[in-house]
């Protein structure tokens, strides 16, 4: 039952050994490159901030405090992101996960982009139709999505810096409604698309959704914001545990 149904015509290269190409050395080099760029950027920005600090009444101690506060407050969220990333390793391999989910993008957008891209080839992530070609196109779709975010930032930031009132005075009602509608519309359609695939898809979807709802509720009731940060990771782990228990006997685990 968990066995995926035979699917549409497979992509030309029908090998499903994703890890064989997902761990290509060139991809590891690109990950190192992205890490390097962020390190260089941080170093340049730190230096610039240090130089400007005295002029705005900011002591060396203030700089140190700011850096340490930023670092300490990032520990929890970074570990939460790592948990989500580990859960996706089996699907995308370490280089893609490190460069997509860990940096630039986020699990929600990148997993969605990958799913959409696979769908555009008549395939589904993770099952027998998930060939090397599908992985490559999905990885491309995730990356180009992240690139578009950066492109928008590169174009809009200089315009906004000039205080371009036109961009900011977009109809506030439209700004409140349209993006939210786009997001909820996208994720509800992507989510519901998973349901007809199998009973276990439905189970894992529902368990994960319920756990997330519970995490958010408790976060609000008890004022524990770490529950919000860890919500996605906890939901994925419990959702996958539920599906493992459901299929366990079938695959002789």
């Amino acid at each position: 039952m968990h066995q995926p149904l035979a699917l549409q015509p497979l992509a030309p290269n029908s090998s499903t050994d994703i890890m064989a190409i997902a761990n290509n050395p060139v991809l590891w080099i690109c990950v190192a490159g992205v890490f390097g760029v962020i390190i260089i950027q941080s170093a340049i920005f730190m230096k610039a901030a240090r130089r400007a600090a005295p002029a705005v009444d900011m002591s060396t101690q203030d700089i140190r405090t700011s850096f340490r506060s930023g670092a300490v407050s990032a520990i929890g969220p970074s570990l939460a992101v790592s948990l989500v990333a580990i859960a996706l390793l089996g699907l995308f391999g370490a280089p893609a996960v490190l460069s997509r989910i860990g940096l630039i993008g986020s699990a929600a957008y990148d997993v969605s982009a990958a799913g959409i891209a696979a769908g555009s080839m008549g395939a589904k992530l993770g099952d027998a139709s998930y060939t090397q070609s599908v992985f490559a196109v999905a990885f491309f779709a995730m990356s180009i999505g992240g690139a578009m975010w950066m492109l928008a930032t590169l174009i809009l930031t200089p315009l906004l810096r000039k205080g371009d009132a036109k961009i900011r005075s977009v109809n506030p009602a439209a700004m409140a409604i349209v993006p939210a509608a786009a997001l909820i519309g996208a994720f509800s359609c992507l989510g519901l698309t998973e349901l007809p695939k199998s009973g276990i898809h439905i189970l894992s979807f529902l368990v994960s959704a319920a756990v997330m709802g519970l995490c958010l509720l408790l976060a609000k009731r008890l004022g524990k914001s770490w529950l919000r940060e860890w919500g996605l990771g906890i939901s994925i782990v419990l959702g996958l545990s539920a599906s493992y228990l459901a299929v366990g006997p079938a695959i002789g685990a």
């Binding site: 997993v111 969605s112 993770g126 099952d127 998930y130 979807f205 996958l240």
Partner: peptide
Amino acid sequence: VTRLYVLPTVLGAVLVQA
């Protein structure tokens, strides 16, 4: 199991979050 069902688990949680 992870490969097959991680997508619905991510999307279920993200939809609620959204």
